[in-house]
Design a protein around this nucleic acid. Sequence first.
DNA 1: CAAGTGGAGATTGTATCCAATTGACCTCAG
DNA 2: CTGAGGTCAATTGGATACAATCTCCACTTG
Lengths: 220, 220
Amino acid sequence: MTRQQFRRPPTAQEAVLVELRRAIISGELRPGEQVLQDALAERFGVSRVPLREALKILEGEGQVIYRPHRGYFVAELDIDDLREVYRIRDLLESEAVRVAVPQIAAEEIAALAEALEVVEHASACGDLPMMAEANRRFHFGLIEAARMPRLSRLVRVLWDATDVYRSLYYSDGSHREVVHNEHRAVLEAVRLGDADRAVTLLLAHRERAVSALERVLPPR
Amino acid sequence: MTRQQFRRPPTAQEAVLVELRRAIISGELRPGEQVLQDALAERFGVSRVPLREALKILEGEGQVIYRPHRGYFVAELDIDDLREVYRIRDLLESEAVRVAVPQIAAEEIAALAEALEVVEHASACGDLPMMAEANRRFHFGLIEAARMPRLSRLVRVLWDATDVYRSLYYSDGSHREVVHNEHRAVLEAVRLGDADRAVTLLLAHRERAVSALERVLPPR
DNA sequence: CAAGTGGAGATTGTATCCAATTGACCTCAG
DNA sequence: CTGAGGTCAATTGGATACAATCTCCACTTG
């Protein structure tokens, strides 16, 4: 029997956490909106207790804002926040790549290549959720090769905080074309063991995204 | 009436969170130890509900590890973890200082100087808790002058994660002497607007601490 | 009309109670 | 002796009930 791993969340709070993330990314819960606990708990078929525990995790990640006795509110990210997040990502991801490239294993590089194929295929099919998932696999496959778990975790939180904007960026087909080329160049640099080049390419990769978003977003 | 600000935590979970942090820093809750909810809740005079919500925050900060159906355990930080935290701090705090120095206000610099005086006075008196508090005021006064709230928050979590080791380092009087000189040099560089020099001094400041700790800690 | 006051209703915060899960120990077949 | 299975106490997970707090708005008062 091929080790089928049940991935069912063992507790309600974890299941709720997954659903909450989905709801925020999908825009079902809109920025600034109050999270009405009774209503949401009922919708998820649980009581408020596990919902509140899940919200505490999201609070720690900055996805919701907690105001005592007022409740939880979906965080709003303006363009300045976005720039700050991307600046921090530059610092952390650059370090990760510099550490990762010299020590990355062949199988890990193969996994990156596979992820990129899925990204391009999903993009061509217009399957944006699958593309987003494979895109994460690519980027985090590289980052995690640095074997710095805390750093990976921080970067993951930063990605989560800006998921909404990322899907906005990727919803444009011409952006996706540019990104595919950038990805391939990064993979090539990783293959050659050229960490500096990979870092530079990724900096440009992020800068392109954030400046495109600046043109789209409310200028405050 | 001089605006006396009540600083009482408005909710039990926040009060418990403060107490939990204290218990972890003080070593009352030891690394690896399970947090027994019934016992702790009773000690704090609250039910398990607010305690669990406070634990969720600490989980998000990596101060405790959550294992479903098993409970919360105080995180253990080995020397590799410590090095990783310090490396991330190097990246984030260097950025903060580079941004902060060119735009820091005169009153903010004055606050830094004041904090340093308290650090040295408390150190001379052997009042380590007060020294730790003032030391934070100094470092975060500088970091927050960068006006990058997310970055400040990340750095704060990293500090919290290594609080135990910091007090260990500062418990040695000769270390404290070195640190005072380093602090004064940093302040001088900030006054002169020499961001690069401040960054370099702070890198050395951290490196001195972490390598001293490496000599003290179990070498795995 | 401005500013303050006092509920009513909505919402959050927490205590209590019970169900579910775990882990240690015991039993017993092989 | 060894390991599979069973039992039970300890502990965590979650539902419910109620207390505390906030928000809104009509009302008063100057």
